[in-house]
Design a protein around this nucleic acid. Structure first.
Lengths: 113, 113
DNA sequence: CAGCAATGCATTGGTTTCTTATGTATCTTT
DNA sequence: AAAGATACATAAGAAACCAATGCATTGCTG
């Protein structure tokens, strides 16, 4: 089972920031695989969604990048900047709060579920 | 505090379906007010978002409507169709599942939060 | 060793879904 | 009488994602 894509909207940026917070530095492809693995294939980030998101994070100064060569193959590593670390805390806390609110909404008159 | 609008994306349809499940029948404006009230103003559904969503639910056969006049003022009441009731269970259960997955993702290496 | 899958980056065109703004009309409160 | 709340609706635009494509390297498999 894979979550319908509409659910991913709005959470992708927060997921990426959180992974970078936990892992210090990661490259794009690694992020897609890590999320797939951590969610047992239920969240699959497409590259068409991830790369633009990473570029925006970079433009906004929330991450810094460094290119690294493994033989001839290039990897672009992303790390949180100090602003990125603050932003991550904000976003994660907002999302956690939002999920509590949603849980409350969904549970009303349905306590047995 | 109001949640950033990106978080609402993808959950609006499910919220509406769930409210209709709990309340049998509701009209548009009532839905915006109920959500605002239930979430202590943290989720504010705009009419520009709600009405198109309701129209789509109707086109998809998930809700039925009936116009009602209160003097000269018209209200359009929405109720779940049988298909709508099934769909609601699906969507609510998927969202609950998704939130558990997100909670797991956000908690990794951050058990103290 | 040829071919395919996986790894790794990226962009483009299109769709969905929301926001902001606007429009019309009625009812209530001050 | 004016303003705000109630109640519907649509239109233009932006944001964010998907699907598809493209390029290149590396690893595996028959």
């Amino acid at each position: 089972m894979v979550y319908s894509s509409e659910l991913i909207k709005g959470t992708l940026k927060t997921i990426v920031l959180k992974l970078l917070e936990d892992n210090n530095r990661m490259y794009g492809y690694e992020i897609t695989q890590r999320v797939k693995e951590l969610t047992f294939d239920r969240i699959q980030i497409t590259e068409g969604a991830l790369y633009p998101t990473l570029h925006v994070l970079e433009e906004d100064g929330l991450v810094t990048t460094e290119l690294e060569y493994n033989g001839k193959r290039v990897r672009k590593y992303y790390s949180l900047s100090p602003e990125g670390k603050n932003k991550t805390k904000e976003k994660v806390s907002e999302l956690a709060d939002f999920m509590n609110t949603m849980k409350f909404l969904l549970d009303i008159k349905n306590q047995s579920a």
